[in-house]
């Protein structure tokens, strides 16, 4: 369980995170979304105590990270894959981290195998590919067998096999009752991995919702209708709150009315439909729709609108 209360971080005049509040619950993979510079990494750094908040607080399992006596066993974090000395081997890097908390050598071997780095574990990290670096970062996060995982862009640089591996791994870890928070800029990846979403823009909370609901709310519920008799159907659909657009003669894009209703109206009038397809926005579109505001609000008089979004 990760809880943030009124979390704020300022670097000089720049506010990276502003009055952010959210709860990451165990048992599910929670995605942490936001455009570049939204404050995701800053928030994650505050979770593990690398940066201290200007005001507000964030706790892990009820305590601030630094107050835990055995932090590696409480929280596994991978904030940047390259938080490793390039001159040291992967194995010795993990061994040194493990030693701080008295984690046995056996566990180091286990995580090395778990992330598939056995063959290169004795090689210096400087020669690692981006994907190997990510795997090492994940190994470090898993070292203490923690109940909470915080991972910043873990799929970055992984090949498709690696992406599938991390997706399965994270879902399994969550299924075991762990708290998993991961950030990603790949919305499509979030749709496959996360069940819950925390979306931030310009350091403020935009949404704290399930993936399903996020897509449902963000998509406009349009229906694509194709018919040779589109001209005849179009006036029948008219009504309050209904809009119909058309790019092609035979295709109507309808919003404000369900596909069931459109189908019935067409049937009543004996209009043959070639297509009747509810359009769901992809997570990618939904995300861009929602964060477009956060980007556009970068004007001096943004404060008021900003608050509406945060609310």
């Amino acid at each position: 369980m990760i809880e943030a209360h009124a979390l704020t971080k300022r670097y000089g005049a720049r506010t990276a995170v502003s009055d952010l509040g959210f709860t990451v619950r165990p048992g599910a993979v929670t995605g942490f979304l936001g455009p570049n510079g939204a404050g995701k990494s800053t928030t994650m750094r505050m979770i593990v105590g690398l940066d201290s908040p200007t005001s507000g607080r964030v706790t892990v399992n009820g305590k601030q990270y630094a107050e835990h006596r055995a932090p590696l066993r409480e929280v596994g974090a991978m904030l940047e894959a390259r938080a490793v000395h390039t001159g040291r081997s992967a194995y010795h890097h993990l061994l040194a981290l493990a030693a701080t908390t008295g984690i046995p050598r056996r566990r180091v071997d286990e995580v090395v195998d778990l992330v598939g780095l056995r063959e290169v574990a004795r090689k210096r990290v400087g020669g690692f590919s981006l994907g190997m670096g990510q795997r090492l970062g994940i190994a470090g996060a898993l070292l203490g067998d923690p109940a909470t995982l915080v991972l910043d862009e873990p799929v970055n640089g992984l090949d498709p096999e690696g992406v599938l591996w991390i997706r399965t791994l994270l879902r399994d870890l969550a299924a075991e009752g762990r708290t998993v928070l991961l950030s990603s800029h790949l919305m499509s990846e979030m749709a496959l991995t996360a069940e819950h979403l925390i979306v931030i823009g310009r350091g403020r909370l935009i949404a704290d919702t399930s993936v399903e609901e996020f897509v449902r709310n963000a998509s406009g519920h349009t229906v694509r209708v194709r018919s040779e008799e589109a001209d005849r159907l179009r006036p029948l659909l008219a009504g309050p709150g209904v809009s119909v657009t058309s790019d092609e003669r035979t295709v109507l894009i309808v919003s404000g009315i369900s596909s069931d209703r459109i189908g019935r109206l067409a049937a009543d009038e004996g209009i043959a439909l070639a297509e009747l397809v509810p359009q769901h926005a992809s997570l990618e579109q939904a995300f861009m729709e929602m964060t477009r505001d956060a980007v556009e609000f970068q004007t001096p008089d943004a404060a008021m609108v900003d608050e509406e979004v945060a609310a």
């Binding site: 399992n61 286990e110 203490g144 109940a147 075991e176 762990r178």
Partner: peptide, 21 residues
């Protein structure tokens, strides 16, 4: 293989004594 294979049972539950820093 994602089972916790460390020196303890499930995290957060009573297991082997947990090492401190």
């Amino acid at each position: 293989d994602t089972r916790p294979v460390g020196d303890s049972a499930h995290p957060g539950t009573a297991g082997a004594p947990r090492g401190q820093v």
